[in-house]
Every structure is written in C-alpha cells, then in structure tokens.
Amino acid sequence: MTEFQNNKRILIFSDQSYLLQANEKVRELTEEGYQCEVVSMPVSSNKAEQLLAQQPLGSLVWIYSEEDSAQAIEYAARNAGFSKNEIWINKSSEQNTRIFCSQCHHINEISSAEMFECERCHIKLDPSNHYSIYHKS
C-alpha cells in the first residue's frame, strides 16, 4: 500500500562546504516536524538514484552544492519522478547572474544586469528576464 507523507520528509544532499548550513537547516526543520536525512556529497549517481527511488511519495529533495554537482542531483531527482516544485537548490554563495548568449549560447556570469559583451562571441547583450530553469540562466 502506498504511504503518502504529506511533504514531511526531506532528503538533503550537501557537499562539505555547505554541511554546516545544511545541518543548521535540519535542526530548524526537525523542530517543525519534518523528517530529514542528510546525504554527504560527493555521492555516486547510482547511490543517488537508489536513495531517491526509496523516498516515499510526497518527499522533497533539497540540494546544497555548487552548480555542476547540484545539476547532476537535480537530473537524477527529475528522472526519479520528483517534480520541479519538489526540488529545491540553494543559491550559490556568489551573487553572479548567469546570462545565456542568444548568439553563441555561451553562459556568461556577470555581476550586474546591465548591457555587456559576451565573453565568447563579443556581441553586445542586453539581459532580459526570460529565464530557463534547464540552463539556469
């Protein structure tokens, strides 16, 4: 029989640099009645997929990691059937904005949203608010 958890369980992936932050969050969440499990990264994709597949329906996935590793876990979670609303990724400690170049597809990391030159094709770009969750830019 399928057991619905009503969003009370959270599987948290965290790499070493975010572990303190993740553990602090776990304490807060536990007080609010959530069941949290922290998985220390790096973790193999097989292991991640196995853990994700074991989660009961209604569980959430939180990821504390830098961009590339976070994306790998996010893909694994999506493949395991988690929706985008059930996956949360912490923002990078850096405040840079990722801007997709409409001409050459290079993703530029810039600190302001003003017009700038693409570092690869050198076309002038005027950033818009059109955002791709897939490209994170």
Partner: peptide, 17 residues
C-alpha cells in the same frame, strides 16, 4: 526565438517574452 534556449523549458516560461 532560440530552440537551444527553450529546450527543457516549461510552457509558461517559454512564453515569458
């Protein structure tokens, strides 16, 4: 519009502009 940019994008986000 750019196919590469909207690949993997949800319907509402595609139409943001």
């Amino acid at each position: 519009w750019s196919l590469t940019f909207v690949l993997g994008m949800d319907f509402k986000s595609i139409h943001t502009p």
